[in-house]
């Protein structure tokens, strides 16, 4: 089981790293980090803040784009091209396939993020010449970004298990945007009472919550991140991703392949 899952994961990773689009996206992200350096120079006193805000936002947005664009094809592409036939005709269980795909893309994103983070820290070092103690919270911010990727991957995988790539992309992006405003959504739902409030409340809790995972602007100001928040966010992201991946496996388990 582990062997099969890791074989599928590795193949997914290999597919991603052999795709030129990935390098273009990473290149653009690093370009944006470099642009942040220039942008910081033309403003006064906030070079560091601008670099952190723009740099980490670039890492996050490009990662999300990669997660969604690869994620939506994870299952549907193999189904369309019928490469799935030769995989599932082997002693591979369908949920193993889903899990392998999930880990493969998460692995890809982690490696990407490491590269982008190295670029970002290099730019930061170039700008400020030495790191501060509070810069460890930048690592926390990057870690939270990776947690966002984990959720987005699972969500994209879920959509990919029953929908066409284009629709999946639209759904996943929409859910990402909604998830960014999830806290407002919950506050809004809390205003409605009685049965009329249950549906919005349930919806507000079902959408992934990305707002608590975005601490870029606060770490840019050198603020710390509470340990409990790190723990809760980790737990939340992993649990949500597990739920979405199980749902994907559940749907996939009962699908007739075209």
């Amino acid at each position: 089981m582990i062997n099969r899952i890791s074989a599928i994961s590795f193949n997914t990773f290999r597919e991603a790293v052999r795709d030129r689009v990935l390098y273009n996206l990473i290149f653009f992200a690093l370009l944006l980090v470099a642009a942040a350096l220039l942008f910081g120079q033309i403003s006064i006193g906030i070079e560091r803040i601008v670099l952190i805000n723009l740099g980490l936002t670039a890492v996050s947005i490009f990662g999300i784009v990669i997660a969604i664009f690869i994620g939506i094809g994870l299952v549907s592409k193999e189904m369309d091209k019928r490469t799935l036939y030769t995989v599932l005709a082997r002693p591979v269980r369908r949920w193993e396939f889903i899990l392998g795909k999930f880990f493969g893309l998460v692995g890809t994103l982690v490696v990407n993020t490491i590269f982008m983070a190295i670029g970002f820290f290099a730019a930061l070092l170039y700008l400020v010449h030495h790191f501060q103690r509070s810069d460890t919270y930048l690592l926390v911010a990057i870690y939270f970004i990776v947690l966002q990727f984990v959720i987005v991957t699972a969500v994209a995988l879920l959509f990919s298990s029953f929908s066409s790539p284009l629709l999946s992309a639209v759904f996943a992006f929409a859910l990402y945007i909604i998830g960014t405003f999830a806290e407002d959504l919950r506050a809004f739902a809390a205003l409605a009472h009685g049965p009329a409030g249950w549906i919005p409340t349930a919806a507000a809790y079902l959408v992934p919550n990305f707002s608590a995972l975005n601490v870029i602007s606060s770490v840019a100001h050198g603020e710390s991140v509470a340990r409990t928040l790190i723990a809760y966010n980790t737990g939340y992201a992993l649990l949500y991703a597990a739920a979405a991946t199980s749902a994907a496996a559940l749907i996939f388990e009962h699908r007739n392949l075209k």
């Binding site: 949920w95 608590a212 737990g235 649990l239 597990a242």
Partner: peptide, 16 residues
């Protein structure tokens, strides 16, 4: 799978 999904989602909501 259904159980894992439900339990994880419920725990996620609690954490949220």
């Amino acid at each position: 799978l259904a159980t894992v999904m439900t339990v994880c989602l419920a725990s996620a909501v609690v954490l949220l």
